[in-house]
Simulated assay, not measured.
Amino acid sequence: MHILVLEKEPTSRRGGQERSLFEVSRQLHQRGHRISLLYTQSGDLLSQYQAFCQQTLSITALSFSRHRPLQTFLNLPRDLNRAKALIHPNEPTLIYTNQIYDIPFAGLLSQLTRLPLVCHLRLPAPDKLDLQRSHYLSAVHKFITVSQHTKQTWLQKPWVQSLGHPPIEVVYNSIDTEYFTPASNQNPHPRQQLQQQWNLPTDHTLLAYAGRLDRRKGLENLLHGFAKFNATQPKSTLLIAGKPLLDRPDYLKELQVLTQTLNIQANVRFLGHLTETRSLYQASDLVIMPSIWPEPFGRVIIEAMACGTPVIASHTGGIPEILTGEFAQTLFPPRNPAALADRIQQVLTWKQTDPLLSQRCRQHVQTHFSLTTNIAEIEGIFQQTLSPQKLLAPPLPLSL
Rank of each mutant, 00 (worst) to 15 (best):
Q132W: 09
Q132I: 11
Q132L: 11
R133H: 12
R133D: 02
S134T: 08
S134W: 03
S134G: 02
S134V: 07
S134Q: 11
S134L: 10
S134N: 05
H135E: 08
Y136W: 13
Y136L: 11
Y136N: 02
L137R: 00
L137W: 01
L137D: 00
S138V: 05
A139R: 00
V140M: 05
H141W: 03
K142Q: 11
K142N: 09
F143E: 01
F143A: 01
I144L: 09
I144S: 02
I144C: 03
T145V: 11
V146S: 01
Q148F: 10
Q148N: 09
H149K: 06
K151D: 03
K151Q: 12
Q152G: 04
Q152E: 13
T153S: 04
T153L: 08
T153R: 02
W154K: 03
L155P: 00
L155S: 02
Q156T: 15
Q156P: 01
K157M: 12
K157R: 15
K157H: 06
P158G: 08
P158F: 06
P158Y: 06
P158E: 09
W159R: 10
W159P: 00
W159A: 06
V160M: 12
Q161V: 02
Q161K: 13
Q161I: 05
G164S: 07
H165S: 14
H165F: 09
P166Y: 10
P166N: 08
P167M: 10
P167E: 12
I168A: 08
E169A: 14
E169H: 13
E169K: 12
V170F: 11
V170S: 02
V170D: 01
V171K: 03
V171S: 04
V171P: 00
Y172T: 14
N173V: 10
S174F: 10
S174A: 15
I175P: 00
I175S: 01
I175L: 06
D176S: 06
D176M: 08
T177K: 05
T177L: 09
T177D: 04
E178L: 12
Y179F: 14
F180E: 00
F180W: 09
F180S: 01
T181L: 12
T181W: 05
P182E: 11
A183P: 00
A183Q: 07
S184P: 00
S184I: 12
N185T: 14
N185K: 13
Q186D: 14
Q186K: 13
Q186P: 01
Q186M: 11
N187C: 00
N187G: 00
P190A: 12
R191M: 08
Q192T: 10
Q193W: 04
Q193S: 07
Q193V: 05
Q193M: 07
L194E: 01
Q195L: 07
Q196E: 13
Q197T: 14
Q197S: 12
Q197R: 15
W198Y: 15
W198D: 04
N199W: 10
N199C: 11
N199A: 15
L200K: 02
L200C: 07
P201Q: 11
P201V: 08
P201W: 10
D203C: 11
D203E: 15
D203W: 05
H204E: 10
T205P: 01
L206G: 02
L207M: 14
A208T: 14
A208Y: 07
Y209G: 02
G211D: 09
G211C: 13
R212H: 14
L213H: 08
D214C: 13
D214P: 04
D214I: 14
D214G: 11
R215V: 15
R215M: 15
R215H: 15
R216G: 15
R216C: 13
R216P: 02
K217E: 14
L219H: 05
